[in-house]
Write a protein that binds this DNA or RNA. Structure first.
Lengths: 341, 341
DNA sequence: CTTTAAAGTTTAAATGTTTTAGTTTGTTTT
DNA sequence: AAAACAAACTAAAACATTTAAACTTTAAAG
């Protein structure tokens, strides 16, 4: 039975055509000032609700943007999302969100939904092993896309992320400068470019300082507090126990510190720990976490901005990589290595 | 210039009508088995993408649900959301998410957007001071709605939340049973029903045990780690310093514990602390947090289920309140009060 | 054989908006 | 007074789908 109040309802009761009503409501200069005001007043009075799907069917613009990340419960994505939200709100765009939990099928389902809804563009941090074809589907259907934090190898689209190699070297060098010689790397995986970059950055910083890198000093794993907590016992049982740990992210670092504390040692004194991302939480952890700021607000804002530009046809070049420069934020979780270690 | 491949494209190249194609793709028993298969195969081949907005314009069903919460970066809502997501995924519904940050205008904007998109229903944890009229707008426009965690006074809609009075009494009584006599309440506000219920529950548990309740023992404030951290110094400076703190939620509790630790005291030994919600994080905090499980997965699942039922017309009664029974999870952040306190 | 029923398919209208190409009205210019 | 023009408005088509009603074909029943 359709919609209660529509353009024609307003038009009829005012004695003008629906065309005029449509134009008036959108502030077109084609209608007289007086008419515009009459129409708007009447629309308000009748409680008119704009029907976006009808409009979008006609214009093939939906005002909807898709955002796909691994998991919004991870505050790293949460912080990026917050700045995307601000930028899109400012531009009166609606966005639909989905987690993919690194499952390509779930991600594909969501992308399909976006196309069905006629989304205008996508911001995504792709799932591990996203096939090139899934991305081609997007371009074939004319969906402007930008990547955040991660990208898909061989797909030429703008990427916004922190400079991982440089960032991790900041953390590693900081520990080295405090006298640490045995430094482990906790969390992360080789399956993402971020993972490879960070491990590489860590290795090359160690080598550059003439320090040894042992395979067993790398404890791979998910990037959560729980995983960091688990990793603690593994870490503490390491032969030739390291005195410092460079962690994949703040979550793993905080989890690790909790695990270390649970084992009766004092993180920041007995073991120096660095995080990555500088989440809001890092500053109030116990001890306050030395970490690498990864530019989440920048990443979100720039990616959103770039997507909006692309949608409007301002063609930013394909395959452009924007690296945010990370910064080391030194707090109490790192200290000079204790004698005898 | 419209859509590349549409129903008519498939129909033409197969020599059948668009009506048949439409029916075939939706597995209608009205088309012959063989035709259905030919159509489906061809649709796949051509890379046909279903146009939801056209369909939805015709059927006035969009398959879109709205979810509004205070802030998804708060893991309490995150956990609820996760279970909503699972339930809706199972039912192939898309959902659009928005934070309102307790700003009614932002919330109103979002609700308006939902109506413009022809959303089928809304799950919401309303902003503080949401006016009744905003909710009436939804019902007038035929948008089935259910509340989670909070509700709007005077609005008769199903509510799903934990039993706050009972839950907080579990925490308070636990501290009392450990011998604590001076117990503070950290965080929360009188502006929400949850806030009032929890404070009431705390007060009545104290009174019932014959203990005094002092006004200055209530430290109101936001419900974040940062706020809990801030509250620590205020708490520690209290005259007649309490030996225990019942916190509004786990975030405030963890923040408070961090603050206590920063001040050189040991949370769980010098000061007993309870949280609320039992976030995943509570178990790995240092010390592990004694807290009240608040049934987030249940709340999310039941609310989503109820909304879907309402949409399908199975009319669950208005104004029905579903209280999830909270459970006390005892960990290391609470202990017997030390002598002399 | 005809009639009836069932199965399969199609026609055409409907959904609410935008937009192009026009019409009407009134003013200005010749 | 006719022609030209501008301003304000409108008719109608288009967007891609769904669905009630109509139509055709085939099979079964009489």
């Amino acid at each position: 039975m359709g919609q209660k109040v529509k353009l024609s309802t307003i038009g009829e009761s005012l004695g003008v055509s629906t065309a005029t009503v449509s134009l008036a409501l959108r502030d077109s200069p084609l209608v007289a000032e007086a008419t515009r005001e009459r129409v708007k007043a009447h629309a308000l009075e009748l409680g008119y609700i704009y029907n976006r799907r009808a409009a979008s069917l006609r214009t093939s613009k939906s005002g909807i943007l898709g955002v796909v990340v691994h998991d919004i419960m991870n505050p790293f994505y949460g912080e990026i999302l917050r700045s995307i939200e601000m930028e899109l709100d400012r531009n009166r765009q609606t966005f639909i969100l989905s987690n993919h939990y690194d499952r390509v099928e779930k991600q594909r389902d969501f992308l399909e939904t976006l196309m069905q809804l006629g989304a205008d563009g996508v911001i995504m941090s792709p799932a591990i092993d996203t096939p090139k074809e899934d991305m081609e589907l997007l371009t074939q259907n004319g969906l402007p896309t930008v990547f955040i934090a991660r990208s898909v190898p061989g797909v030429d689209l703008p990427v916004f992320r922190g400079d991982d190699k440089f960032g991790i070297s900041l953390a590693t060098n900081h520990l080295i400068s405090l006298g640490h010689k045995r430094i482990a790397m906790i969390g992360g995986t080789d399956q993402t470019s971020t993972g490879r970059d960070r491990y590489e950055g860590y290795v090359s910083a160690m080598r550059k300082a003439g320090l040894e890198v042992k395979d067993e000093w790398r404890i791979e794993g998910p990037r959560t507090k729980a995983a960091g907590f688990e990793a603690a016992s593994q870490f503490l049982a390491l032969p030739d126990k390291p005195t410092g740990a460079v962690c994949w992210n703040d979550l793993a670092a905080i989890g690790l510190m909790n695990g270390i504390a649970r084992a009766g040692l004092t993180p920041g004194v007995d073991i120096s720990v660095t995080g990555y991302d500088d989440l809001e939480e890092a500053a109030i952890a116990t001890p306050a976490l030395t970490t690498v700021w990864n530019g989440q607000p920048e990443v979100g804002r720039l990616a959103a901005r770039a997507l909006l530009d692309r949608i409007e046809g301002k063609h930013t070049p394909d395959g452009d990589l924007t690296l945010i420069k990370p910064e080391l934020h030194i707090r109490q979780s790192t200290s000079r290595v204790v004698e005898g270690n």
